[in-house]
Nucleic acid binder design. Structure first.
Lengths: 210, 210
DNA sequence: GTGTGGAGACTGACCAGTCAGTCTGGGAGG
DNA sequence: CCTCCCAGACTGACTGGTCAGTCTCCACAC
């Protein structure tokens, strides 16, 4: 039908403004933080207008959430794909870590927003942060539980280990955001993965997953 | 612009007001975050007045800094002492981790401020945060370097490992702040220390340091 | 009276969010 | 092909609330 074609030729224009606002917001939030950023900064950076911003988003807060949610969704998909392609338990863990690190590397603005700029005030912000982190923890924990079942590692508190891993990865990325080291960030993938794996008693594969 | 130097009253009675303000500020900042807190919240919680607050502190920011600086200084001293009392390399590492975790456990408000509020607060606070974290990293790194020298562990990127440890400890404490688990927090000390030590290839002592 | 610690009303900058109005593309009717 | 018309995307000056920081006054001590 003509309808579908018409829509797809119509909406891109509309989507375009929304995207411009979102992209600019990512830059602005990343460089000034949520509270340091003023909606007019986003307006200016996006080359649109305040009206346009409030036409697409109900509040400054909502802009932030859209940004984070879009990014986390993408991240989850990327990880899922990478893990599917990987062989063996250790290979899958390596793929998961590598995907996280690589994604942060290619999206430093979003990495900053997710890891450093997340506002503390407001229950909504808190709840979402805890929930999203919890999801990630569950994924890693799943691998560790399987490793325990398969007798690859000793029985242990896999949830704790998952939190340790998340904290470790986050801190290493934060160091990179703050100091620029190592350059490129990808250089940490191999040694970082080795540290994480041996913390629970697993040995890395000879050739890490791509 | 007002260089109203932060006054430190000599009379112990007047020092009392300052302390009340600081203690209340810790509670307020911990529960609402820096930007979510309003100076009048601190005024109300401390049972003093705006005049008193601005008599002792130059700005809201300064209150926050005083809080963080006092706490970090105390923390550093506690760690130093605990490590001095400990025997052997592994024992010292165990003591350092245990001290950190215990201190956060007994000061949840300050833990929240240091681990959750501080990172998210704007650029003004970044420099100091990076520097202080760097110091902590250097301490841990020192232990690891010694372990490498003594051939207790393989040569490796000890700075990376130190960041991994810091991130891991922080994340575990944050989980406790968010979810209340484990109760008491001290229950993580032994398994957490084991994870950290084995990540670099060290075995824990039979009986962990007190 | 003079100094010190404190109270709390007040000010003014700042900024999220609004709204009355403009512009544009495209569809219906000629 | 050419109006005319409308929906709805977009504009930006404006508003109203908020809050850090100031100012004036007071109570009490010496």
């Amino acid at each position: 039908m003509a309808t579908a074609v018409e829509r797809s030729s119509k909406t891109p224009q509309r989507e375009d403004t929304r995207r411009k606002i979102l992209d600019s917001a990512a830059q602005v939030f990343a460089s000034k933080g949520f509270y340091g950023s003023v909606v007019d900064d986003i307006v200016k950076a996006s080359g649109t207008s305040k009206g346009a911003v409030y036409f697409y988003f109900e509040s400054k807060e909502r802009i932030f959430f859209s940004l984070v949610e879009d990014y986390v969704t993408t991240l989850a998909q990327e990880m899922h794909l990478a893990v599917q392609r990987a062989r063996g338990l250790v290979g899958q863990v390596e793929a998961a870590v590598a995907t996280l690190v690589r994604s942060f590397h290619t999206n430093p603005a979003l990495a900053r927003i997710v890891l450093l700029d997340w506002p503390m005030a407001g229950a909504e912000f808190q709840g979402k942060r805890i929930a999203l982190k919890g999801m990630l923890v569950e994924v890693l924990r799943g691998y560790l539980d399987r490793a325990v079942e398969d007798r690859r590692i000793d029985a242990q508190d896999t949830e704790l280990a998952a939190y340790v891993w998340i904290g470790a990865i986050g801190e290493v990325v934060v160091r990179w955001l703050n100091t620029g080291r190592p350059a490129p960030l990808e250089d940490v993938i191999v040694p970082l993965t080795r540290l994480l794996l041996s913390s629970v008693g697993l040995a890395p594969t000879a050739s890490p997953a791509t």
